[in-house]
């Protein structure tokens, strides 16, 4: 049971490519691998723990004001993440800029709370939240890998493509500047969806 909760969001029910949740704050951070991974970890932690906390208090929240209770819990966790990032990795926190704050309105978190945590016990909710964070993280890392590798020829800031391959050093290679631009992230997601739906045909839309 718990295993299924964990594996489902990684591929078949991936929050980004299948449920279309949480695209808002995701794509602008994928030009480099490092911020993408930090973002993925932050979202995983916030999703997991907000689901856990909401699930703990799910029977005491009045139904009419549940949205605002959820927002307060999520906002509190995001403030914690933001303060920790500022304290321990200030550079990355600067690169992520407003996108840490935007985790609050990340649809994955609210979506999982509404769809899962409100009707399930705390422990499965924690697993569900973490798994959805991972599913989101996988897509983020794949996109960041492609964009950093082809866009700057580096991975984690380390030069991968040999410098003497470049045109300016008398070689034949040039970085693809298009990869750095924001729209390329969207096109990459489109292509990932294409690949995923070719593999599992039952996801195809009519």
């Amino acid at each position: 049971m718990n295993k299924k909760i964990f594996t489902e969001p990684l591929f078949k029910g991936n929050p980004i490519t299948v449920l279309v949740l949480g695209i808002c704050s995701a794509l602008a951070v994928t030009t480099k691998l490092e911020p993408a991974i930090v973002m993925a970890i932050s979202v995983t932690i916030v999703t997991g723990f907000s689901s856990f906390i909401i699930s703990l208090i799910r029977n005491t929240i009045p139904n009419r004001i549940r949205i605002i209770v959820q927002l307060v819990v999520v906002a509190m966790l995001v403030i914690l993440v933001d303060q920790i990032l500022k304290a321990y990795s200030y550079e990355v926190s600067k690169q992520l800029s407003v996108f840490v704050g935007l985790i609050i309105t990340n649809c994955i978190i609210m979506g999982r709370i509404e769809a899962f945590a409100l009707g399930n016990k705390p422990f499965p909710s924690l697993i569900d939240g973490l798994a959805n964070g991972f599913g989101y993280g996988i897509i983020l890392v794949v996109i960041a890998f492609v964009r950093e590798f082809f866009g700057s020829g580096t991975l984690f800031g380390i030069q991968i493509i040999p410098l003497n391959w470049y045109l300016k050093n008398g070689g034949f290679y040039e970085n693809n500047g298009l990869m750095i631009l924001p729209p390329m992230a969207l096109i990459l997601i489109g292509l990932i969806i294409w690949v995923q739906r070719s593999i599992s045909k039952d996801l195809i839309e009519k």
Binding site: G190, W194, L203, I204, E205
Partner: peptide
């Protein structure tokens, strides 16, 4: 192409 329809 069918897998690209809709969201893709």
């Amino acid at each position: 192409p069918a897998p690209l329809r809709g969201l893709g």
